[in-house]
Design a protein around this nucleic acid. Structure first.
Lengths: 158, 158
DNA sequence: GCTTGACCCTGCCACCGTGGGAAGCACCAC
DNA sequence: GTGGTGCTTCCCACGGTGGCAGGGTCAAGC
């Protein structure tokens, strides 16, 4: 099966499949013309990768999960641990985002949003977080390592 | 004020300050020796940028907010709109992450996590989302544009 | 045979935001 | 003049994906 069919079958782009091969997530055979030749097994692995990515597992986790999946005799404990670590990371990120959204929503609620120039949102951005007031976000941020949202990564948040 | 002091005062790294200058977020003066010379006003802008980044505003939003902040006569409506759009994006992302976490946690709950090889997590990754079962995540994902979490961006999810 | 078009190949650049490091200049203290 | 520190610019890396350029390959049609 050529890469185009494999892409369609797995729901991944051909581009990504080549990338996953380049980083050694899978090793499809090559034919005489140097075209990749995907077996049904390769396609199953690609689907696996896609489902794992759908759950936002980083590729390094995907690599480990794939290895465990391939290992018939693996212990499910290891899989479970990876999954729960990822759950924790996802939830931490989600909470952090929600804290930011909450702070910002709070500010926006006190902003007239009319033609006048006074705006608590800008005031807050100018002044920074007041102690005991809004902006819980920064506090929950630091320990977050994976799933690098475009937000700040500042460890130095003091 | 040199870049090192400005960095300390604003809580940003010197590296990032140079970057923000490179993308025209601010234009500090230069001294005869080609060193950047940050005024108190520059530092206030840097702090503004940092606070906006703490709330995960993407830099393009930061640019707009800075422009509005500089404009004494701006209408707060515009600021409010940017903020609320961002809140919506944050919440969408947060919900999507929580949906993924929920699916995964659900799977992990049914995983023995012992030495035995059977594992619903791997089964699910192999089979993909069953209709009406778990994996709400993919459904909520597509429209998300900003705050590019490391998760999949797949538009082609059919 | 030859052309056309769809497919495949590799390789490079872009995004976003940040960190790391190299190589060279500026400054200050001794 | 020497050492250390800070500044300058420039390039590379990450993670994950898209895009495009410049080529090779194959199957179909004439």
């Amino acid at each position: 099966m050529n890469i185009g069919e494999a892409a369609e079958a797995s729901g991944l782009s051909a581009k990504m499949i080549r990338h996953y091969e380049a980083i050694d997530l899978l090793q499809p055979q090559r034919r005489g013309n140097n075209y990749r030749d995907f077996s049904a097994h390769d396609v199953a692995e690609l689907s696996f990768i896609r489902h794992a990515r759908d759950l936002a597992f980083p590729l390094e986790d995907v690599r480990r999960l794939l290895a465990l999946w391939r290992d018939r005799g693996r212990a499910s404990a290891e899989v479970r641990r990876i999954a729960l670590d990822h759950v924790a990371a996802l939830e931490e990120k989600a909470h952090s985002l929600q804290a930011m959204a909450g702070s910002l929503r709070h500010l926006a609620r006190h902003c007239q949003g009319d033609g006048r120039p006074d705006c608590p949102i800008l005031d807050q951005l100018e002044a920074g977080a007041e102690p005991g007031e809004t902006l819980v976000a920064a506090a929950t941020f630091p320990p977050l390592a994976r799933t690098p949202l475009s937000g700040p990564s500042k460890e130095s948040a003091g």
